[in-house]
Simulated assay, not measured.
Amino acid sequence: MRRFLIPALLIASPAVAQPPLFNPAGYRIAHYRAPVRQAPAGVGRIAPAAAAQLVPGRDALFIDVLPSEGGHREADGRWRLAEPHESIPGAHWFPETGRGDLAPGIGPWFAQRVARLTHGRRDAMLILFCRADCWMGWNAARRLRAAGYSNVWWLAEGTDGWSDLKRPLSRIEPDGGIMP
């Protein structure tokens, strides 16, 4: 009986380098739709039923950070949407602010608008969300906590959890319309 040796190079599969999931600052930058186990440091997690007891704009500032799927920002700062966006009634929508690495102009626009909506109060209750199993709400909550807001909450289940409670969603436009 003959034995054939197969070179190890033919058996071993080459290691494929995976892109990093987080940037050096600790924000998720890839595979945003994945389970998220815990809230960022210094951020509370709020259940959909608890969030549903609050009145957006009175009890808390609800902030949706889902990207503008298929849409984009024009050179003049206006958002061109590919399709309507539905969110928690009374929420403010800040497309693209949940990404780990923000496009130019997005970060300052987000910071300025949140400061204006909170009247500069760093203790205002902020509820950040996207969809269930989405790191964008996590990133945005972490970003606002790092900016000095002390009452930041993450609604991990996002609009999916809101809908699961049989609560309505309503069509909204990007907050402020025009970016600087």
Rank of each mutant, 00 (worst) to 15 (best):
D101M: 08
D76T: 07
R45E: 15
A91D: 01
I178L: 02
P168G: 06
R80P: 00
G70I: 07
L117V: 03
E173M: 14
G71K: 09
L81I: 11
F62D: 02
W79I: 01
P24W: 14
D164L: 10
L102G: 08
S13K: 14
L126C: 05
G44Q: 12
V65T: 15
P180R: 10
G42R: 14
L169I: 15
P48K: 03
V55T: 14
P180Y: 13
S163A: 15
G158L: 03
S87D: 00
D133Q: 14
P95D: 07
G120W: 13
A75Q: 14
R3L: 13
S170W: 10
R116L: 08
R142S: 07
D59S: 15
L117E: 13
P24F: 15
G158K: 00
I46P: 04
E69G: 01
V65Q: 12
G98R: 00
V65K: 12
A124G: 06
R37N: 06
A141Q: 05
L126Y: 08
P84R: 14
A103R: 05
G98T: 07
N23H: 09
H72I: 05
T159G: 03
G77L: 07
A41R: 05
Y27N: 15
T118K: 08
G71N: 05
L21I: 11
R122T: 04
Q112S: 15
I29F: 03
L81C: 01
P35M: 10
S170E: 15
R3H: 11
G100I: 10
L144E: 04
F129G: 00
R113L: 04
M179A: 09
A146V: 10
S13P: 01
A47H: 06
L117H: 03
R58K: 13
V16S: 04
R73A: 02
R2P: 15
E173L: 10
H92I: 06
V55C: 07
A17I: 11
G120I: 13
D123H: 06
Q38N: 13
I63A: 09
M179Q: 04
P20S: 14
L155H: 12
G177Y: 04
W162L: 02
R121W: 12
L81H: 01
R121N: 04
M179S: 04
V16W: 06
L9D: 14
E157L: 12
I172E: 02
N151L: 06
A50I: 11
P19F: 08
M136Q: 03
S163P: 05
G107T: 05
R45I: 14
G44F: 01
L128N: 00
R80Y: 03
H119V: 02
E173V: 11
R78N: 10
I178H: 01
R45F: 13
L102P: 09
A47K: 08
G90L: 05
V16M: 05
D64W: 10
L9G: 15
A15N: 08
H85Q: 10
I6G: 04
A17P: 04
N151T: 08
A103F: 05
Q112M: 09
Y27A: 14
I11P: 03
V65D: 03
A111M: 15
H85K: 12
E69C: 01
R116V: 04
I178Y: 02
Q112L: 06
D101K: 14
I88H: 00
I6M: 10
F110K: 00
A156V: 12
T118W: 12
R78L: 08
G176A: 07
G177R: 11
L102S: 13
R122W: 08
Y32M: 07
C134M: 02
P20L: 12
P7D: 13
L169Y: 02
G26K: 09
